[in-house]
Computed example of a mutant assay.
Amino acid sequence: MPTGVALRDVRAQLFDAAERVLLRAGPNGLTSRAVTMEAACAKGVLHRHFTDFDTFLAELVLDRAARFETQAVALRGRAGDGTVVDNLAAALTDLFGPVALGIVGLVISRDGLRARLRQTWPTGIPVLTDATATLASYLDLERQQGRLAANADVHALAPALVGAGHLLFAGQPDPPPTRGDVHALVAAVIVGHTR
């Protein structure tokens, strides 16, 4: 590897490289060597910026989970527009892209990473926990507007949607589920709750 070359925004370059490796090789292929080779830098660069590889992975997961906040804001902004089923189907499709599925698989497969995440993320799995909170917030807005039944339990519907969505997308990565598949899943979960 070349030395003496200044890297701009090292963390972002390493995170982007890790994401590419994760998408290409899966959680088991994500090693410090694979990341630094993908980033075209010396292995020591990663260890200068992160205490160990699990710390690097934890910060990668939290960085990628934070990016989904844009999707959360967009979903809440759609409350009252379109149909509830269409909005939820679009949100699940946006959420369960390859990066999110890769991150969830990474967290599930690495004990050391989960232990590190517990220091700042006490419960649940980043991405899935955020998605559940986002959907519950959106469903609550729809309930306030009268488009969802007043007795709809948004804190039960949201995890049901996220869990079913994860199973649908993780179980069929290529080709991904069709729009119709996602729409049918959402309609089945919230049947009887929309007005």
Rank of each mutant, 00 (worst) to 15 (best):
R116P: 00
F50V: 08
R116F: 09
R78F: 03
N87E: 05
H47G: 14
D81M: 10
D111G: 00
I108L: 14
G97H: 09
A133R: 04
A18K: 02
D9Y: 13
H155P: 09
L92E: 07
T51M: 11
F96Y: 11
T31S: 09
R110Y: 04
H49V: 11
R110E: 08
G80H: 07
T93Y: 07
T93W: 08
A42Q: 12
D111E: 14
A66F: 08
D94E: 12
T134L: 04
A17Q: 06
V45L: 09
L148Y: 05
T51P: 12
Q144C: 10
R24A: 14
A136K: 06
A65Q: 10
D130N: 13
D94R: 02
A25M: 07
I103G: 02
F96T: 00
A58K: 01
V99Q: 05
F56M: 00
L62V: 12
A91G: 07
A34Q: 01
K43L: 12
V10I: 14
N87L: 02
R116A: 13
A72H: 06
L57D: 09
T55Q: 15
P27W: 01
W121L: 08
R8E: 10
I103D: 02
R20W: 06
L14V: 06
A42D: 15
L117H: 04
L60K: 04
A131G: 15
S32W: 10
R147W: 00
N28L: 14
A65S: 13
L101D: 09
G112I: 07
R48P: 08
N151W: 11
R76F: 03
F50C: 10
F15T: 02
P98V: 12
L141H: 09
L106V: 07
P27S: 15
A18V: 03
V73H: 08
R114N: 10
C41K: 00
G102R: 01
L141P: 02
L88N: 03
E19D: 13
T134G: 01
A152C: 09
G80V: 02
P27G: 09
S137P: 05
A74T: 08
R114I: 07
T55H: 15
D52C: 04
D130P: 07
R67K: 13
F15G: 05
A72D: 13
P27Y: 03
A136G: 03
A91N: 01
T83S: 15
L95E: 03
P122L: 11
L88Y: 00
A152F: 05
D140T: 14
A74G: 00
L92T: 03
S32R: 10
H155F: 14
Q119W: 08
V84E: 01
V127L: 07
T123V: 15
P126T: 10
I108W: 12
L30I: 05
R11A: 15
C41P: 03
Q71V: 12
R20C: 05
A74E: 10
V84G: 02
V85S: 11
L101G: 10
G82E: 04
D140W: 08
L128H: 02
T83E: 11
G26A: 06
